[in-house]
């Protein structure tokens, strides 16, 4: 489903003391994720987790290497093909990215609207999805009226609205307390069990340890461990 071949990413770090500086965020990444897998991407802050995900949804392009998504090389996608790629993946962020002037239902409906679903489809799908992510009872509340966990449920609902085969989550529990984090992880696991391939960046050691999934550990842009089970202690 997802494959990285020798991928490196060097950011332009601006100039320091008159010298151009570069940041090597990813260095020779080789990674293969099968359809239906749930993979945790762990590592210290600055290890390159977000960069790896951004390469997948084409927010950044790799400096070298190839990336395959669903069998297709995405390195040289044309600008107008990027939206098509993104429609095949749900993206979840640490800060939820909900629109404050819309209710939960409207936030989810908005995503369907910009993907040009019909009004009827929107009306039918939104309640089902809100039910699925356990936020139906807050459908008509605004984000400011919700707890962090509720906001993340709404954001996950929005991400899976068109049944994407892939879901990327960047520190989805980063702003949540441990109990709520656990609930959100369980929700993501449920979604994964319905067939969605999942790559979750986090540094929440306890959760990763208790989920017993594949864990890929990054350190300074390199994969230092890739194994089933718990957080690696490198």
């Amino acid at each position: 489903m997802i494959q990285f071949c020798n991928v490196s990413k060097v950011y332009d770090g601006g100039t320091q003391n008159g010298n151009k500086s570069f940041v090597k965020a990813l260095d020779g990444i080789n990674l293969k994720i099968e359809k239906g897998e749930m993979v945790f991407l762990v590592g210290a802050s600055g290890a390159g987790k977000s960069t790896l995900q951004k390469l997948l949804f084409k927010e950044e392009s790799p400096t070298t290497g190839q990336i395959l998504v669903g069998g297709r090389n995405i390195v040289r996608l044309k600008k107008r093909e990027i939206p098509v790629l993104r429609r095949r993946m749900g993206i979840v962020f640490q800060d939820f990215k909900l629109l404050e002037d819309m209710t939960v239902a409207e936030n989810v409906a908005f995503a369907m609207e910009v993907l040009k679903f019909s009004r009827k489809e929107i009306k039918n799908t939104v309640p089902k999805v809100l039910e699925q992510v356990g936020i139906a009872y807050r459908a008509n509340h605004f984000p400011r009226q919700l707890s962090g966990g509720e906001k993340q449920r709404a954001a996950i609902g929005r991400a899976i609205i068109n049944n994407p085969p892939i879901l990327l989550a960047d520190e989805p529990t980063g702003n949540l307390d441990p109990d709520t984090s656990w609930e959100i992880m369980k929700l993501l696991e449920e979604i994964n069990l319905r067939g969605t391939t999942m790559l979750i960046a986090t540094h929440d050691r306890d959760i990763v340890d208790s989920m017993h999934k594949r864990v890929v550990t990054l350190s300074r842009g390199k994969i230092v461990s890739d194994r089933r089970g718990g957080y690696s202690r490198v």
């Binding site: 600008k79 939206p83 790629l85 993104r86 993206i91 990215k97 993907l115 929005r158």
Partner: peptide, 17 residues
Amino acid sequence: NKEIQIMRFVGASNWFI
């Protein structure tokens, strides 16, 4: 800005935005 970001990430076409 935030709305535009969301539209981009859910895959709205560039012209739609």
